[in-house]
Structures are given as structure tokens and as C-alpha cells.
Design a protein around this nucleic acid. Structure first.
Length: 435
DNA sequence: TTTGATGT
């Protein structure tokens, strides 16, 4: 890329590039070489910005700078200086990055001084804010070296998350689920980021039905840090040695509220169509892999998985979830049309059947019989892409999985009892009452 | 097979 292009961080058309003339060659079913899409940080109408573009007379004094890319050992962060949050963080997880010398207790959170002081988030912003400094790329995914783990503690990888009931609980289990997928894959790419989602509400001025955006801010004005309403992950797991040679990648998108989540909520209830996520995020994810066909196929599966998850929730919780995700839900008719021809099956062509069932049985708590009863919609017509929920039966690890084999938490800490929440001796109970 | 983060 042109050096000048690299130096000018521009904020428009993030990830909008699908390349020129649809020339992207997608990952082949035979697991061959993966050509990268023709893409640049700055895109113009579906093509990379050229040197000639930058000579536009209006740009004599440069393009506005609204967000910036930061390149770390195991991930790339796009930092948005309006919200002082990452816009997205894209990481690569391999078997190697999951184990190594990287130790969490050797790392400390630090401000990213490569971002201008007035635009970056500060350690003080999170202090006494009541929110956790939540990793987008989790520390545990980058243990290959101490440097790799240290990198994840840069505040350009951090966003304010509710601690008790979310970051330290449901979201942590979700991160563990992704790790478990990575252990059984040949490499996993994950995009994680915040969302600011509106809720249905009458317009105050006109009284008409509409939408309202509302989210807290922390820190000190005018340099406030936004507190996102939701977080998303898009997971792309490669499998170069898939059974039957059919499937080469598992793909899926999830959106969760930045709030305590009932630990019994099925993970599949938070599966969303990638298309819906891309609409509310204003971003295209994995443009070098996600063709229209693959997205359509995986999104049909996503709707089916979400429906299945919701069916397993209590009616009140289900209604709450629908309210939470209202802005992402398709019209009722669309849902009905998509789910009209479900294809339940327990097998997939990933070649992990046994592992999946064993892991699901271990995670399910209810034993194998419970797992067998779960219908697993099979992605079809996805050019080698299946939905992530077809792996590990879309089951989260159990609560406090790290205590399972006799050993308590390594720190052996007592409850904090502070206003920040969490860490009480009987946390599970107090969490329930919080919901 | 070992997540997560606070505060002194």
C-alpha cells in the first residue's frame, strides 16, 4: 500500500471493500491457498483509495481523522476517538496462542500513548466507574508470549463492561466457548466490538412510534468514554482437514447486552444473522470470506438456532430478549418464511461429531440424554460454510468451569463486597436475584 | 484442559 495512505487514517467506509469487480476468490473447498481480498484501510466506492483520490482539491489540508488502526502482536484494533472505545478488534487465535508463557498476573492495563492524549481513554476513566475494563481480544487467547498478552491490556483493546453477571460470568463463558472451538480448529479469526443499540420508543417531539438511543458515559467531560449497550463477536473458524472434504469454515455472529445475563440462557439465543449485525454495526466483516451465498446460508441457520434458543427460555426472559434485540430482528413474516423449512439433524460434516457430543455432555450438566434432544439445524448451501452453533452443540461451558476438578480459583480470594459488585462468596445466588 | 477484574 502507498505509504501516504497508511499514514492518513480515515474513518469512512470501514471494511466496506469487497474488492474490485467481485474478483475476490473465496476459500476453496479443497483447503487451498487463501488469496487476500484487494483491500485498503480507506475504501472508495468498493475499491481502495488511490493516490489520485488523495490529490482531490478539498483534501489540501488532509482527511478528517475519526478512528485509527493499531497493530498488536495477536490482534488489530480500530479505535474510535468519539466514543473512546474500540470500534472493533480483530484477533487470530491458534493452538499456539492459547498456551505459552504469557501470564495474566504479569500484565497491567496501560493507556495507549500512541493515541493523542485528549482522544484516548484513560486509566482514571475506569477508576471507580463501576465498570470493568473489559478485553475485546481476551488475554487468555494470547499466551504465546508475555508481550502478546501484555498487548491485550492496552486500553485500545478495552471497553467498559458490566462486571458481575456479564464480563466475569456469561461473557467469560462465551470467550471460553470460542477458545474451545479454537482448540478444535486450524485457526480462528474473531472480531469483537461494542454496539450502541436503540430501543423502541415514542418520539418525544412528534409522539410517533420510533426509536431512542440511550447509553451512559464515564470519565470527565469533554473527554467522556461511552458505555456500550451491547457487544458482538463474529467467529470464523477454519478447518483445513474437514471430514468429507465438504466444510472448510464455521461462521457465526453473536450479540449480547452489556448487562447481567441469566446463566441458564442458551448461547444460541444470542446468535444473530450476520447481515443484521452488519446493518447495526455499519461494517462488513471478513469480506475475503463472506460471500452473499455464504452469508445467506449461515444466516438461515442463525435464525433457526436463535429460535431454538428462545424456545428453551422462560416466557418472560424471552420477551426481554426480544426487546433487547428489537432493532436487529427481522420482520415477523421474514422469520416465519426463513424457519418454515427447518432441517433438524444431529450430524455435521465437520468431522467432530464425537468430540462435540462428549464436550457437550461435559458442559451440559444434564448428561448426554439432554444433548441428544437438542435439534441441530444444519447449514446448507453455504459453499463450505457452516454455522458455529453446529460445533460443540452451541453449549457454553458450565458456570465456574475452572473449579470443576477439585481445584479452587488460583487466587483463593474472598468476596469483595464492594459496590462494584461480583466476587461474593455465593455469587450465583446473588446474581440470580440481580436479574 | 485453568476466565475474569477490583482495590490497597
Amino acid at each position: 500500500m502507498d505509504l501516504r495512505l497508511r499514514n492518513i487514517a480515515v474513518g469512512f467506509a470501514v471494511g466496506a471493500g469487497l474488492g474490485v469487480g467481485g474478483a475476490i476468490a473465496y476459500i476453496k473447498a479443497n483447503g487451498g491457498a487463501v488469496p487476500r481480498p484487494q483491500q485498503a484501510w480507506a475504501m472508495a466506492g468498493g475499491r481502495p483509495v488511490t493516490q489520485k483520490d488523495l490529490e482531490h482539491p478539498a483534501l489540501k489540508f488532509g482527511l478528517p481523522q475519526t478512528e485509527q488502526l493499531r497493530f498488536f502482536s495477536g490482534f488489530v484494533s480500530c479505535f474510535d476517538s468519539a466514543t473512546r472505545n474500540p470500534k472493533w478488534v480483530l484477533e487470530f487465535i491458534s493452538k499456539d496462542s492459547l498456551k505459552g508463557e504469557g501470564a495474566r498476573d504479569q500484565s497491567t492495563f496501560y493507556e495507549d500513548t500512541s493515541i493523542e492524549e485528549r482522544f484516548r481513554s484513560k486509566l482514571a476513566d475506569f477508576q471507580d466507574s463501576g465498570y470493568d475494563r473489559g478485553h475485546m481480544a481476551p488475554a487468555a487467547n494470547h499466551k504465546g508470549s508475555q508481550k502478546a498478552m501484555d498487548d491485550t491490556f492496552a486500553l485500545t483493546n478495552i471497553s467498559p463492561q458490566v462486571g458481575a453477571g456479564f464480563n466475569r460470568d456469561y461473557w467469560a463463558r462465551f470467550e471460553k466457548f470460542v477458545k474451545d472451538v479454537a482448540r478444535r480448529s486450524d485457526g480462528v479469526y474473531v472480531v469483537t466490538g461494542p454496539l450502541y443499540l436503540p430501543t423502541p420508543d415514542a418520539d418525544a417531539a412528534t409522539g410517533r412510534p420510533g426509536w431512542r438511543m440511550q447509553y451512559p458515559m464515564i470519565g470527565k467531560p469533554p473527554q467522556l468514554v461511552a458505555v456500550p449497550t451491547h457487544y458482538f463477536k463474529v467467529v470464523l473458524a477454519e478447518n483445513s482437514s474437514g471430514a468429507n472434504g465438504g466444510h472448510t469454515a464455521a461462521l457465526g455472529a453473536f450479540v449480547m447486552p452489556n448487562a447481567p445475563i441469566d446463566p441458564d440462557t442458551p448461547l444460541s439465543a444470542y446468535a444473530v444473522p450476520l447481515d443484521a449485525l452488519e446493518c447495526v454495526a455499519g461494517a462488513r466483516f471478513f469480506p475475503g470470506y463472506v460471500s452473499e451465498r455464504r452469508r445467506a446460508a449461515v444466516d438461515r441457520a442463525a435464525v433457526a438456532w436463535q429460535e431454538d434458543g428462545r424456545r428453551r427460555m422462560r416466557i418472560l426472559a424471552r420477551a426481554g430478549l426480544a426487546q433487547e434485540q428489537a432493532v436487529m430482528l427481522p420482520e415477523r413474516a421474514t422469520v416465519d418464511a426463513i424457519t418454515a423449512s427447518p432441517q433438524p439433524t444431529r450430524s455435521n460434516n465437520w468431522g467432530w461429531g464425537k468430540k462435540r457430543d462428549a464436550a457437550a455432555a461435559a458442559a451440559g450438566g444434564g448428561g448426554g440424554a439432554d444433548v441428544v434432544d437438542v435439534p441441530v439445524p444444519k447449514t446448507s448451501g453455504g459453499d463450505g460454510a457452516i454455522h458455529v452453533c453446529e460445533l460443540l452443540a452451541c453449549r457454553l461451558p458450565p458456570e465456574r468451569w475452572w473449579e470443576n476438578n477439585g481445584q479452587g480459583p488460583s487466587g483463593g480470594r474472598k468476596g469483595r463486597g464492594g459496590g462494584g459488585g461480583g466476587g461474593s462468596v455465593d455469587r450465583g445466588q446473588s446474581l440470580k436475584s440481580r436479574l
